[in-house]
């Protein structure tokens, strides 16, 4: 059993990320800290294959040929394995940190799993699909611990003036 992550992004600027970044910078006081905010549709594919290479190849095939996750006219995608990308990580002197947001009751995606297994003929090779939103925050901060603290503060909505990306009453989050 192998698990791979499929990240799907828009080719054009993502308006949800731009709107969220605007709210955080202009309305919530993160203008000096938050340098960039991007988002990706996140899928975790649990596949019944023997090794990582096979899993990556199958994920590429699913992304390119099924039209289920990726519309090549508007999306690009990336296949990766868990832990492959350091989180947080330094880029251009800033700290980039990813936050994965999932619905508490809806992380599993039985509709996608079933479509792959039955309609698209992958059968038992596809064990399960999970989905979420992966936000990436580029922060001007002192180090990785500060990045984690800020990421949680920015993400988790605890009051009207604190937190934006997650409502903890129906969503959960993690720094993968």
């Amino acid at each position: 059993m192998q698990a791979v992550e499929l990240l799907v992004t828009l080719k054009i600027p993502d308006v949800s990320a731009l709107t969220a970044a605007n709210a955080l910078r202009r309305r919530m006081g993160y203008g000096d800290v938050l340098k960039e905010l991007t988002r990706a549709d996140y899928y975790r594919l649990e596949l019944n294959v023997e090794d990582e290479a096979q899993a990556r190849a199958l994920a590429d095939e699913i992304a390119e040929q099924t039209s289920l996750f990726v519309n090549p006219n508007k999306n690009t995608y990336q296949v990766r394995t868990a832990g492959e990308t350091p989180n947080p990580r330094q880029e251009d002197g800033l700290w980039v940190i990813d936050i994965l947001v999932t619905d508490i009751e809806g992380a599993a995606a039985p509709d996608l799993t079933e479509a792959l297994r039955k309609r698209l003929g992958y059968g038992e090779t596809v064990v399960e699909v999970q989905r979420g939103i992966l936000w990436s925050l580029k922060l001007d901060c002192a180090g990785p611990e500060e990045a984690k603290r800020l990421a949680e503060e920015i993400a988790v909505t605890r009051s009207r003036d604190r937190g934006l990306l997650v409502n903890p009453h129906f969503q959960t989050w993690c720094i993968p």
Binding site: V15, S16, T19, M28, L164
Partner: peptide
């Protein structure tokens, strides 16, 4: 705001 992020949350910050 087109329900961006989630319904109502961006407007609530205005």
């Amino acid at each position: 705001y087109q329900d961006r992020v989630r319904s109502g949350v961006i407007a609530a910050k205005e």
